[in-house]
């Protein structure tokens, strides 16, 4: 089960700068750790995260083992039109996750 939390303001004025935040529960395995039997735990990180605003990509993060466990990102977008802000991500094992939230933009 992938757990993520996103923070998108429910409303904004057109042209306003809005802050977006996302946190994903993921170990971001470096590939350098061993389990209690001395076996290497394979590298597994969320390697790509996309943010789409009404379908078009506005932000992208390519990450690796240098990003802390349970990756957290905070950035901005400009409110244009009402619609959806969608996040999607995939890790080295191919496991995908997504979360989205609506935003109402007023004049």
């Amino acid at each position: 089960m992938t757990v993520a939390r996103i923070l998108v303001p429910p409303t904004a004025k057109r042209g306003e700068l809005v802050e977006l935040r996302i946190a994903i529960q993921h170990p971001m395995e470096t590939g350098f750790r061993m389990d209690n039997n001395g076996k290497v735990i394979p590298k597994n990180t969320v390697h790509t995260l996309l943010c789409r605003y009404n379908g078009s990509e506005v932000f992208r993060a390519e990450m690796g083992s240098g990003i802390a466990a349970n990756p957290y990102l905070q950035f901005y977008i400009i409110a244009q039109d009402s619609g959806n802000i969608e996040f999607s991500w995939v890790d080295d094992r191919g496991e995908k996750g997504a979360a989205s939230s609506p935003i109402t933009v007023t004049a």
């Binding site: 089960m1 757990v3 923070l7």
Partner: peptide
Amino acid sequence: DFSSPAMLWTTRGEK
């Protein structure tokens, strides 16, 4: 609360 990585576990706990 949003910054706290611990809250990912409470979110999962609620589910």
